[in-house]
Structure formats: structure tokens, C-alpha cells
Amino acid sequence: MRTWVISVLLVGSLIGLAGCAEKTTKEIPVEKKVTTQMIDQKAQDEAKKAAEQKKAEEQKPIVVNVIDPNTKKVIKTFTPKDMGYGTNDAKYKEDIEKWAKDLARGTQTTPGYDQRINPDRIAANGQLIKGTPRIILDETQLSQKVILASAKGGDVELPLQVSPSGYKPVDVAYLAEVVVATYSTHFNSGVIGRTKNIELSAQAINNVIVGTGDIFSFNTTVGPSDAAHGYQSAPEAVEGKLVPGIGGGICQTSSTLYNAVDQLGVTYVEKHHHSIHVGYVPTGRDATVSYGGVDFRFQNTTGVPLLLKAIVVKGTITVEVRTSAAYHSLIKKGH
């Protein structure tokens, strides 16, 4: 009897174990199915999210940001489509080129990025006084960059070309060694206003370094010839007549400079004559200037750095052009 009971219990245990095993086997596919469904749902959600993001990006307008490389700030933002890109490309290109030109050269109300070199000079104590380099904004390259970026959008940096003066620091101590050109003109020192104006403008160009390849601008170097800068009223040529004007007489300084550098191999960038004959130089040998207007500009194409000297003594202004003894034999002369 006892043996029979034990047998029954063993059979029951085995049946119970088989039942548990069978239940566990049946539940595995259900868990896998739930997990697969969760994965599929997650993939669907991600695909839907990506599609919505793509659609949003497609609907978002394409923009081009123009950035100043010095400040890293956005100075202009274009929406090409609104300006005709893709529908009127010729007009779009014309508008971009006009904008680039105004940005480089400036307008009546806004200064441009282009800057003439303000030359370095040597102080009375021999120390170097730094000016500012020549800066040119490449209008053509800027226009091309903006148009190229207009298809997909993006950032465009201004292509600025910065040109420091063309001389070596070691040159400074020797540039006054040799006079390679000189010219003098005379004036009535009794005319106080005119004398003062000649003295001030001569002082402004004295000891100025014109490096190899530099473009010298009289107006940029001298600055405003107005009362705020000490200039006085004196006769000046305006539309064929002599009339009183603040700064009258500075053209004698610019003309004397012209006749000095003309003896060398320089290239003229801008030069104008007076509307009337002036008595201090022969006819056709003058170079009139007016701050904010006509200028006298030349490029140093002599092959060596130069130093300008301007001396005013007893009714005479003399402009000398000098360089170092080491460069003397290398300098290119004028006609």
C-alpha cells in the first residue's frame, strides 16, 4: 500500500512538471511577439519622425548668411528664393553684384570695406608709428560665393585682402640714407593762411614710408584740410577762379610731391590738374587735391621702399625722396 502511494505521488509530480514545462514553452512565442511588435512600432515612430523633420526642412526657407571674418558676426542674410533665385537668375545675379560693389566701395551713407593704406611713418625720435594696411573686398569672389551657396544655403565669409606696407622692419633705420629725387617750389611766406596750410600738409607727409607696391594717397595721408585740423583760409582755384577757402595752398604741397616722385619709376593711380595755371610749377606739372574729392595717388613701382621728406623753410617747400644705400642701385628711375 505504501509503495502504491509513493508511485502515485511520483507520477503526479512528473505530470505537474510536464505541465509547467509545456506552459513555459507556449509563453515564449508570445513574449517574442510582443518584443517584435515594440521594435516595429519604435522603427515606425522613428521613420515618421524623420519624415516629419525632412518635410519641415523642405518647407523651411533657404538662407545665406554673410559673415565678417574679423568679428564673426552676420552682416547680411539673403533668402535667395524671395529675390528671384531659380526663377529669374539673371536679375538675382545682378542684384547680388550690385550689393557686393556697394559693400566694398561704400555708398553715400555707408562706408565700404575697401580702405586705402594709411602709411607708416618715422617719428622725430626715430620710432616707427604704425598706420593701417590696405584692405580690399573682392567683389567678384563674394558674388560668386553667395550665388553658389544660394542652392542649399549656408554661411559665406567676406573675402578680404589685407596688404601691409611693402618694407621690412630692419629697413626703417636706413631709409633716409640716400636722396634719390628732390623738387622745390616757392611761395610768399607773408601770406599767413597759405603758409600755414603748406606747413601743415608738408608735416603730414614728412617721414612717411612708401613701401614697395604701396599706393600712396595724398588725401588719406594728410587727412581733412579743415579748420578743426588747424587749416586756415587762403585763395584756392575753384572752377577757373581764385576764391578764398579753408586749406588753400595744400595743392602746392601735392604738386611739389608729384614733381619729386615723377623722377622715379612710379605708376600714377589718380592725378588731376587745376582749372587754371598755377605759378609755382610749369603748366601741366601740378596735381590738385581736395579732401573727399579729387586725390593724388601713385603706386611705388620702383622696386624698393621709399621715405618722403618734406621741408618748409622761408617761402620754399622741398620734397625729397630717399631710400637706403643698399637699395640705391636697385631703384627704377622714371622717364
Rank of each mutant, 00 (worst) to 15 (best):
W99Y: 13
A100P: 01
A100H: 06
K101I: 13
A104H: 05
A104P: 02
R105C: 06
R105N: 14
G106T: 14
G106L: 06
T107W: 13
T109K: 09
T109P: 02
T109S: 10
T110S: 08
T110L: 11
T110H: 14
D114R: 03
P119Y: 00
I122D: 00
A123L: 15
A123H: 06
A124D: 15
N125H: 07
N125Y: 02
G126A: 06
Q127K: 14
L128G: 04
I129M: 10
K130H: 13
G131M: 02
T132R: 08
T132H: 08
P133N: 10
P133H: 02
I136N: 11
D138V: 07
D138I: 06
T140R: 06
Q141P: 03
L142Y: 03
L142D: 08
S143I: 13
Q144T: 14
K145D: 15
K145E: 15
V146G: 08
I147G: 03
I147R: 14
L148G: 13
L148S: 15
A149L: 05
S150N: 12
K152V: 11
G153I: 14
G154W: 08
D155E: 14
L158Y: 01
L158I: 10
L158R: 12
P159S: 11
P159E: 12
V162I: 15
V162H: 06
S163C: 03
S163P: 04
P164E: 14
G166V: 07
Y167H: 09
D171E: 08
A173Y: 01
Y174N: 14
L175M: 09
L175F: 04
A176S: 15
E177R: 06
E177I: 05
E177Q: 14
V179P: 04
V180Y: 02
A181R: 03
T182S: 14
Y183D: 12
Y183G: 01
T185I: 08
F187M: 04
N188S: 12
S189F: 05
G190S: 07
V191C: 03
V191Q: 15
I192M: 09
R194M: 00
R194Q: 04
T195K: 14
K196P: 00
K196W: 02
K196E: 09
S201L: 03
Q203P: 07
A204I: 01
A204C: 03
I205G: 01
I205T: 09
N207V: 05
N207C: 04
I209T: 09
I209D: 03
T212M: 06
G213D: 05
G213N: 09
D214Y: 00
D214C: 04
I215W: 09
I215L: 03
F216E: 05
F216T: 10
S217P: 04
F218I: 07
F218E: 12
